[in-house]
């Protein structure tokens, strides 16, 4: 039997709508489930008190500080490297052999699984450079992991700055460096910040790479050289070893809320950015 084009049209439309709604339903279900079980666990005491008895009781304050320290370290290292690379690719060179290798490396780094970053961080930072399990080892490992995201988003933001900005700046007698710092960078800033925020989200969500490089101690980290446990790792250990489902749900709910907020801020930034450059 041949289906008439018009009937086919209708069938396909229903199928595609169904697929989209299914995906939405799954997302809503996962988020709602975790929030429903975890939201009531989150209160001031949960956020501000240290875990006790392996995390069975008490809050998650040390893991929040640990997450913060590891993430900040990663961003502070990755941001200059990534933004610098982006400026080099966008402003300082034509497409040639070197840029091809840089792009290939960045795209390959983007595809490497986090567990491989973990292995590398363990053997290079923790053992070879003798940094032990520490905030610094974890931060450096994550920095490499987020580098490609920072490069790609920054380059896109820089390329979106209208060419006329540069021409005007040059015509006023500015050098290339002055043009980049005073004309291009400020206009690309929102786009760059968007990329940095997405990277922060990835750092917060990461488990495999951090557990192998920052360790999993529950003690409060006091310096870059102390070992620590991030929230995602804490959630993983609580859930996998069945230590405390209550606290696991609370931690997971907090992670989802954080990721949600980061996405909201990142989207507002990029929407303003697009609106401005039009």
């Amino acid at each position: 039997m041949r289906i008439s084009p018009r009937a086919g049209e209708r069938i396909v439309k229903v199928l595609i709508w169904a697929a989209a709604m299914l995906v939405m339903a799954v997302l809503v279900f996962i988020v709602a489930y975790i929030l429903a079980k975890g939201l009531h666990v989150i209160d001031w005491r949960f956020l501000a008190s240290a875990p006790s008895n392996m995390g069975r009781s008490g809050g998650i304050s040390t893991t929040i500080i640990g997450t913060l320290m590891v993430t900040v370290t990663a961003v502070v290292i990755a941001a200059p490297l990534g933004i610098g690379t982006a400026f080099y690719l966008a402003e300082y060179t034509r497409e040639n052999f070197v840029t091809k290798i840089i792009r290939f490396s960045a795209e390959s780094l983007a595809g490497i699984p986090s567990i491989v970053y973990g292995l590398f961080g363990l053997i290079f930072f923790v053992v070879y450079l003798d940094m032990r399990w520490s905030v610094l080892s974890g931060g450096l490992t994550l920095a490499l992991m987020i580098l490609p995201t920072v490069i790609r988003t920054s380059e896109e933001a820089i390329k979106a700055v209208p060419y006329i900005y540069r021409e005007v700046s040059f015509s006023l007698g500015a050098t290339k460096w002055q043009t980049i710092i005073k004309a291009v960078f400020p206009s690309a800033l929102r786009g760059i910040a968007n990329g940095i925020l997405l990277s922060v989200g990835r750092c917060i969500a990461e488990t495999a790479a951090v557990i192998l490089t920052a360790g999993s101690t529950l003690r409060m980290p006091t310096s870059l050289f102390s070992p620590t446990r991030t929230m995602a790792v804490h959630f993983y250990i609580l859930a996998r070893e069945g230590i405390s489902m209550e606290n696991a749900y609370g931690t997971a709910a907090l992670l989802i809320i954080l990721i949600f907020l980061i996405n909201v801020v990142a989207n507002t930034l990029i929407n303003r950015f697009v609106a401005k450059s039009r």
């Binding site: 997302l27 996962i30 988020v31 975790i34 488990t207 992670l255 989802i256 990721i259 949600f260 996405n263």
Partner: peptide
Amino acid sequence: IQLLAGIPSVVYGFW
């Protein structure tokens, strides 16, 4: 979809 991309993988595993 962006939120879906950002949710930690451990959360998916747990779910």
